[in-house]
Simulated assay, not measured.
Amino acid sequence: VQSSHAFTVHEAEQVDDFYAAADDAKLDRKRNPKPAEKTNALDFLDAADDAGAGMTGYQSLITGTFYRHAVLDRLKLRRNLRAAGMTEEEAEEASVAAEAEFVTAFVDAFPEAKKNSTASTGSLPALVLAFEGERPYNYAAAFQNPIDENPVGGGGEGPAGPAAVRRLLKHHAFVSGRRPDIKAGRVLTYDPQIDELLGTLKDTGALTVTSAEELTA
């Protein structure tokens, strides 16, 4: 397996987010002070107005449309399993299952850092392109020049999502025409806008599918 780091296909601006946090118990004490008749011997622990945690600070945030790339060597996977003692039939069955798990993991992957404070667990890819060749083909060069998100009429390419899809599939179709070992790819989208765009593209070098399972078919 090979994987490369993700990068934005457009110029992304870093935003410094100022935050303040305080201990909920501390705030609750200030809003609802204890009546004198309900005091007890341990009240001295909460006596100070500033008792409890509190902090302020900055965190750097960035968002964008990312390109990421991963490769699974299907032939080596089967050779390794047979070398480990599996029969050819057993190795094929295990390999097919592993391929499905690999593709599903790639499709469902999301940024783990600060996943609770950024809700990154809800993200799904705008487009997944899966294809097979005799060697890996990384299309990072398609985004060597960042996408200009200014309106199309103003000299730009419009929103990064659709623009990136057009660039990626154009690049794939171009390379496929010059590398006969590349088999027809498959694309999957979870974005209705991208799904509509795919219907307007004449040559994508890929067949549109509706599930992650079909990417490995």
Score class of each variant (00 low, 15 high):
22 A>Y: 00
141 A>C: 04
110 F>D: 01
166 R>C: 09
85 G>W: 12
94 A>W: 08
47 A>G: 09
108 D>V: 06
84 A>F: 15
144 Q>D: 13
177 G>P: 00
99 E>A: 06
49 D>C: 01
129 L>E: 08
162 P>W: 12
143 F>L: 05
16 D>W: 06
97 A>V: 02
207 L>A: 11
115 K>S: 02
109 A>P: 05
11 E>K: 09
128 V>K: 06
1 V>R: 14
86 M>T: 10
12 A>Y: 07
47 A>Q: 07
183 K>T: 06
21 A>K: 03
147 I>Y: 11
45 L>C: 00
56 T>D: 00
163 A>N: 06
132 E>N: 13
125 P>S: 12
12 A>G: 04
209 V>H: 06
180 P>C: 06
14 Q>S: 01
203 D>W: 08
183 K>A: 13
137 Y>D: 02
214 E>H: 07
4 S>A: 12
89 E>Y: 07
109 A>C: 10
90 E>L: 07
193 Q>F: 15
125 P>A: 10
182 I>F: 06
211 S>Y: 08
206 A>V: 04
196 E>A: 14
39 T>P: 00
200 T>M: 07
213 E>V: 07
171 H>N: 08
8 T>H: 05
12 A>S: 07
83 A>G: 04
188 L>Y: 10
3 S>H: 15
156 G>T: 11
67 Y>K: 06
10 H>F: 09
165 V>K: 09
34 K>A: 01
162 P>K: 09
102 F>G: 02
201 L>C: 08
199 G>L: 11
50 D>P: 00
41 A>T: 13
71 V>D: 13
173 A>H: 14
134 E>I: 09
75 L>D: 15
153 G>V: 03
209 V>W: 07
41 A>S: 12
96 V>N: 02
202 K>N: 09
66 F>N: 05
44 F>L: 05
120 S>I: 03
118 T>L: 08
132 E>L: 13
149 E>A: 08
50 D>S: 01
146 P>Q: 04
211 S>I: 13
5 H>V: 10
76 K>V: 15
56 T>G: 01
134 E>F: 09
216 T>S: 09
14 Q>C: 01
30 K>P: 00
73 D>I: 14
95 S>P: 10
128 V>N: 03
145 N>E: 14
195 D>C: 10
211 S>V: 12
70 A>L: 10
184 A>G: 04
130 A>E: 09
10 H>P: 02
60 S>L: 00
118 T>S: 04
7 F>I: 05
7 F>K: 09
198 L>K: 09
